[in-house]
């Protein structure tokens, strides 16, 4: 798994690439919680994620909760069909704000 963090239009865009699974979700968690700690709107770009397992989704849930406590916006961008099915299985699609594209997310977050 690779990751990137960059600022765009006042938001922090956290991008992941490859698989987010049991092996590397601790790293994803660290990246996400650090981004939330910067108290800017966070957009998590999942467009290059080929697979995300339950541990990765748990990291997203924990980061969302941290963002809510900090009063910071937190949203997912370009969620793959497979990841969306897993989110829907646990009804988490009702919890997260999900944008179809990064452009949509930046427009809304800004």
């Amino acid at each position: 798994m690779k990751h990137s963090v960059k600022e765009d239009s006042g938001s922090l865009v956290v991008g992941f690439e490859g698989d987010v699974d049991l092996q590397n979700s601790p790293q994803a968690r660290k990246v996400l919680l650090e981004a939330v700690g910067r108290r800017q709107p966070v957009l998590v770009d999942l467009s290059s994620v080929s697979y995300i397992d339950s541990s990765g989704i748990a990291c997203l849930v924990e980061s969302l909760q941290a963002a809510r406590k900090a009063g910071t916006a937190f949203a997912l961008v370009a969620v793959s069909d497979s990841a969306l099915r897993v989110l829907q299985l646990a009804r988490l699609d009702t919890v997260f704000t999900i944008y179809g594209s990064l452009a949509d997310g930046l427009a809304q977050a800004g």
Binding site: S25, P26, R29, S55, A58, C59, E62, A90, L92
Partner: peptide, 20 residues
């Protein structure tokens, strides 16, 4: 038994599966 995940991650994973 098989991972080094943080306790908080494990607890959320367990709650997700309980929801399921």
């Amino acid at each position: 038994e098989h991972t080094d995940l943080d306790r908080s991650t494990m607890e959320i994973m367990a709650r997700i599966k309980l929801e399921v």
